[in-house]
Design a binder for these strands. Structure first.
Length: 494
RNA sequence: GCCGGUGUAGCUCAAUGGUUAGAGUAAUUGCAUCAUAAGCAAGAGGUUACAGGUUCGAGUCCCGUCACCGGCACCA
């Protein structure tokens, strides 16, 4: 393997499989896919990891409710996740399940190491336990000192427990985050984490006595491992780590862990602490994106305002869904969506934007009989259109470097608008001396747009290149245009 | 309650303390007819949540209030 080629390792969180795939899962994963595709396009060696988190009390309970074994429940839901990712064109390199034996084996080794180093020690966990919920509660869970679900006062229970010396690493982690050795983006999330770390970290219990569905602790097999501790390790085992800190996978450290804001804090505390404990390099970056609200309200099943990814795909198509989610807001901030707004944007940007542009240019190309029409690239470079394309590539790449996915899309759409203006200005549908070269330049620009779209809308990108009948080498492009069906049919009122 | 964030055009969002607060979109008007009735252009649209303060100058900094969002460690 050529070590001079840059590598890019990106992860999504592993999703908890107690329920089906929702919009948040889809958003993170699509974003990760776009980034992975972009870096592949740049010729980098890319590894894109996603997967599922399958242990823990919640799964145990959900399975019990359905009369299934936990493993069965996981298998069923994993199938649904994978189907969803296939539908959305997610180009992951590995789908890890925390029940995979290679993961479990490596986790046990890691725990042994931490135990031997004294970073895991035996102690007692004291907590408020609600017999009704069969769960420990925090003070903030309680209403008037009682469990809100069972209206009962929880009991104080002590149980044998193994604790991880998280407290030992707080200061070191704070320094690394402050100095961007562990980069947390956007900036406000970094601030939030730093503020939290100021107060220091407490040791956490990493064993569970009452949860049976989990990885047994190697030094106390009657207890299972707390899910976070083992789940994080997927980022290592997913690229082939076998539990030896001296033998790290070639893709480690991760270039970026992508996630929603709810789990940013644990990723910025427990996970780095585990790595420091194992003396393994920290990931380079944690990138945190926001949530979607629906018409200003939190999405929730009880409000009945949930938008499922499948519904989006049905209405807007796969690429429509990918586009609408990523362009809905500034990547890294919260966004608000509604069916009305989504439809408006679909029509404006996809049907009337890229769809109509491709349609009109292809028609003109066909009318002119472009069955094998060559354009020498040097004929474009010095023109206004060539300059525009160069500028667009620059903006596009700059946006990607800063994870501004919405800005990258913006830059493409500016080029689309430029093409429409150009068509108008040159009146390219009319016969003239420069008509042919103008249309060829437009076809070329559209082929460049298709290349830029590959990361975001792989299917559309393909369809465009197919209609252009593009064959190219370093010096020229040859077009054999053929009109096909609309890229994004306009949606009418409904 | 504590910690952090957000609040800018009808909607989605921009704006290192420095011209007259900008884009896109929607609506309006004019032009165009290659195109999925799509395109181009123009005007209009603002008490920057509210109230005070610092400053020659505040959307930006400080104080307070309100609204919304997230986190608060055994749910993951």
């Amino acid at each position: 393997m050529n070590s001079k080629v840059k590598k890019f390792y990106i992860t999504t969180p592993i999703y908890y499989v107690n329920d089906r795939m929702h919009l948040g899962h889809a958003y993170t994963t699509i974003a990760a896919d776009v980034l992975a595709r972009y870096h592949r396009l740049k010729g980098e060696r890319v590894f894109f990891l996603t997967g599922t988190d399958e242990h823990g009390g919640k799964i145990e309970k959900a399975a019990e409710k359905l009369g299934k074994s936990p493993k069965q429940l996981c298998d069923d839901n994993v199938r649904r996740f994978k189907k969803g990712w296939e539908k959305l064109n997610i180009s992951y390199d590995n789908f890890i399940r925390t029940t995979d034996s290679y993961h479990e084996e490596a986790v046990k080794k890691a725990l042994e190491i931490l135990h031997k180093k004294g970073l895991i020690y035996k102690g007692v966990y004291r907590g408020l336990y609600c017999l009704g919920c069969e769960q420990y509660k925090t003070e903030s869970d309680l209403v008037n000192g009682k469990c809100p679900d069972h209206k009962k006062k929880p009991e104080i229970i002590e149980e044998e427990s193994y604790l991880f010396r998280l407290s030992k690493f707080g200061e070191e982690i704070r320094k690394k985050i402050k100095q961007d050795e562990l980069l947390i983006r956007p900036e406000d999330k970094k601030k939030e984490v730093l503020e939290f770390l100021k107060g220091g970290l407490k040791d956490i219990s990493i064993s569970r006595k009452k949860v049976k569905w989990g990885i047994p602790l190697p030094f106390a097999p009657h207890l299972t491992t707390y899910v976070w501790i083992e789940a994080f390790l997927n980022y290592l085992t997913g690229v082939g780590w076998e539990g030896n800190p001296k033998k790290l996978p070639e893709f480690w450290p991760a270039d970026v862990h992508l996630m929603a804001k709810d789990i940013a804090r644990v990723h910025a505390t427990i996970w780095p602490a585990v790595l420091l404990g194992l003396e393994i390099a920290l990931p380079k970056q944690i990138f945190v994106h926001g949530y979607f609200t629906i018409e200003g309200q939190k999405m929730s099943k009880s409000l009945g305002n949930v938008i499922w990814p499948e519904e989006l795909i049905e209405k807007f198509g796969v690429d429509g869904t990918r586009y609408l989610l990523l362009s809905a807001c500034c990547f890294g901030k919260d966004g608000d969506i509604s069916w009305g707004k989504l439809k408006e944007k679909y029509n404006a940007d996809l049907a009337k934007g890229i769809g109509n542009l491709v349609s009109r240019v292809i028609t003109i190309g066909e009318t002119l009989g472009f069955k094998s029409e060559a354009l020498k690239l040097r004929q474009v470079h010095s023109t206004e259109i060539g300059k525009q394309i160069d500028a667009t590539w620059k903006n596009y790449e700059r946006a990607f470097d800063e994870f501004k996915l919405d800005k990258a899309l913006d830059s493409i759409w500016k080029l689309i608008a430029f093409c429409d203006q150009y068509i108008e200005k040159k009146r390219v549908w009319e016969e003239s001396k420069e008509q042919k070269i103008c249309v060829l330049c437009l076809l070329y620009t559209i082929s460049e747009i298709a290349k830029m779209l590959e990361s975001f809308l792989p299917e559309t990108s393909n369809k465009i290149l197919c209609q252009l009948g593009l064959k190219s080498d370093e010096k020229k492009c040859v077009f054999a245009v053929e009109k096909k069906e609309s890229l994004f049919p306009r949606l009418n009122s409904k």
